[in-house]
Simulated assay, not measured.
Amino acid sequence: MRALLTAACLALLATPGLAVLPDEVLDDPALEARARDLSQGLRCLVCRNESIDESNAELARDLRLLVRERLVAGDTDAQVIDYLVDRYGEYVLLNPPATGSTLLLWGAPLALLLLGGGVAVAHVSGQKRAPQAAGLSEEEEARLKAMLDDRSDG
């Protein structure tokens, strides 16, 4: 029983390594290591938030092969990343750089929260500064009492 449990745990741990098929592996260990490093930072366009190194999707396989093809052609790591970003956009990066569009996406919720808090504070302080309803004068209270008395008598 213990051996079965150990085998199941090892199989679960090894599943990300199964995504890269044997026919994809490069003969040069240094190039293969670079390809694996690059693949771990690239997003599978089919499987959200999963790297192409971990994904079994066909498109992820195509991207892994494209990375290896570019490395064999002599591209640097930066050139491979630039090529893929030019082709697929920054979405292909698991950790995109902090640029205008990504800063806007990260900053918008905070800006909206601060704006909402400002509106709430302005509303509450405006309520405090609003003129309070004035009470009835003594003459008006006497007239009101007389009217209510007349109504209850009738």
Score class of each variant (00 low, 15 high):
Gln127Leu: 08
Leu94Tyr: 08
Ala57Val: 07
Val119Ala: 11
Glu141Cys: 13
Ala98Met: 02
Leu65Asn: 00
Ala60Thr: 03
Thr99Lys: 02
Val124His: 13
Gly17Tyr: 15
Arg151Gln: 08
Arg151Trp: 13
Val119Gln: 03
Arg64Val: 00
Ser51Leu: 00
Leu110Ala: 13
Glu139Trp: 09
Leu93Trp: 05
Leu94Asp: 07
Arg43Lys: 05
Leu94Trp: 01
Gly154Lys: 09
Asp37Ser: 08
Gly107Gln: 05
Ser39Arg: 06
Leu59Lys: 06
Leu13Asp: 14
Pro109Lys: 14
Gly107Cys: 10
Arg87Ala: 07
Pro96Leu: 00
Leu65Asp: 00
Val80Cys: 11
Leu31Gln: 03
Ala73Ser: 03
Thr102Asn: 04
Arg70Lys: 05
Val119Tyr: 09
Ala122Glu: 06
Ala30His: 06
Trp106Arg: 14
Leu110Thr: 00
Ser101Pro: 13
Ala57Arg: 13
Gln132Tyr: 15
Lys128Phe: 11
Leu93Gly: 11
Gln132Ala: 13
Gly41His: 06
Pro16Ser: 00
Ala111Ser: 08
Arg129Pro: 06
Arg87Pro: 03
Leu42Thr: 09
Leu18Ala: 12
Asp62Glu: 04
Arg2Gln: 07
Val121Ile: 04
Asp149Gly: 11
Cys9Phe: 13
Pro131Asn: 09
Asp62Leu: 01
Leu113Ile: 13
Asn95Tyr: 12
Leu31Arg: 02
Arg70Gln: 14
Val46Pro: 08
Val46Thr: 11
Leu21Ser: 11
Tyr83Thr: 00
Ala133Met: 08
Asp150Val: 06
Ala11Trp: 11
Thr102Gly: 04
Ala134Asp: 09
Thr6Cys: 11
Leu113Asp: 12
Ser39Met: 09
Ala35Pro: 03
Gly117Lys: 00
Ala130His: 14
Leu112Trp: 04
Asp53Asn: 10
Leu26Glu: 08
Lys145Asp: 00
Met1Glu: 03
Gly107Ala: 13
Glu141His: 12
Val80Ala: 05
Val119Trp: 14
Val85Phe: 07
Cys44His: 01
Cys9Pro: 12
Gly100Ile: 15
Asp53Glu: 10
Leu12Arg: 15
Ala78Thr: 12
Cys9Tyr: 01
Asp62Ile: 02
Asn95Ser: 09
Ala7Tyr: 15
Pro96Lys: 01
Thr15Phe: 15
Arg64His: 04
Gly107Asn: 03
Val80Thr: 09
Pro97Met: 05
Val20Cys: 02
Ala3Pro: 09
Leu93Ser: 03
Ala108Asn: 02
Ala35Tyr: 14
Arg151Met: 12
Asp150Phe: 14
Glu140Ala: 15
Cys9Asp: 12
